[in-house]
């Protein structure tokens, strides 16, 4: 299997196949961030694909100074923040955790996905996304980058062009919101489990 460097060089020569191979390697990580950021699957797909389109257009500027994913993550952050500014999100009132796994016949045939535990996790995820949606986009993004990407506060502040204190505050507020939301959910955990079993 070709390494990233070879694929990037081919993609810089406008080889779409090479770029799609790169996208297949990192698409899940980008989509994970987008799905936490956007609250519904369609927006998450549009945003994550926009990241890839921006990456493709900017690929000529990649100088191999960092890893490809570090460079891609910077593009992702900028794309997320720009979408925030442009009022990208279409269905802010909806939470779509269950949308992420359409319950069609094909999906239902996969017993592992349709298990009560899985459905319960989907509902929990919906609660997480709901809690994150109550934050500002910057706070939400700061939490995602800190918790899911493992970036330091300094790195996040540099990428988001804000102070370290702002990032720390955002992460703390995210945790507080999540804690309040999930503690409420845990109190009704039995109800959720029964709901999942019925589903």
């Amino acid at each position: 299997m070709a390494d990233d460097t070879e694929l990037i060089k081919r993609a810089q020569a406008e080889d779409i196949d090479a770029f799609c191979t790169l996208a297949e390697r990192y698409a899940r990580r980008i989509h994970l961030l987008a799905s936490h950021y956007c609250r519904n699957q369609q927006d998450a797909e549009d945003l994550s694909q926009e990241v890839w389109l921006k990456a493709y257009q900017a690929l000529q500027s990649f100088r191999f100074d960092s890893s490809f994913y570090t460079w891609l993550r910077r593009i992702t952050i900028n794309a997320f923040l720009n979408h925030r500014r442009s009022g990208f999100f279409r269905r802010q009132g909806q939470t779509t955790a269950v949308e992420l796994m359409p319950l069609d016949s094909e999906t239902l045939s996969e017993s592992s996905l349709a298990s009560p535990e899985n459905i319960y996790n989907k509902l929990l995820f919906e609660s997480v996304v709901q809690a994150l949606s109550e934050l500002t986009p910057s706070q939400r993004l700061a939490f995602l980058l800190r918790h899911y990407e493992g970036m330091s506060y300094e790195e996040i502040a540099n990428a988001m062009n804000c102070s370290t204190g702002t990032v720390k505050k955002g992460v703390w507020r995210a945790i507080t919101k999540l804690r309040a939301r999930l503690s409420t959910e845990s109190e009704s955990q039995e109800a959720l489990t029964s709901l999942a079993n019925e589903y």
Binding site: E24, A27, R28, H31, L32, S35, H36, Q41, A97, L100, M101, E106, T107, E110, L113, N118, N121, K122, L124, F125, V128, H147, Y148, I175, L178, R179, L182, S183, S186
Partner: peptide
């Protein structure tokens, strides 16, 4: 805090669509 972050980590993979989606 520990429970909250463990929960978010646990449901993290749930956010990724099934293989048939890709």
């Amino acid at each position: 805090v520990n429970a909250t972050l463990r929960t978010t980590t646990r449901v993290r993979e749930t956010a990724i669509p099934a293989d048939s989606y890709w």
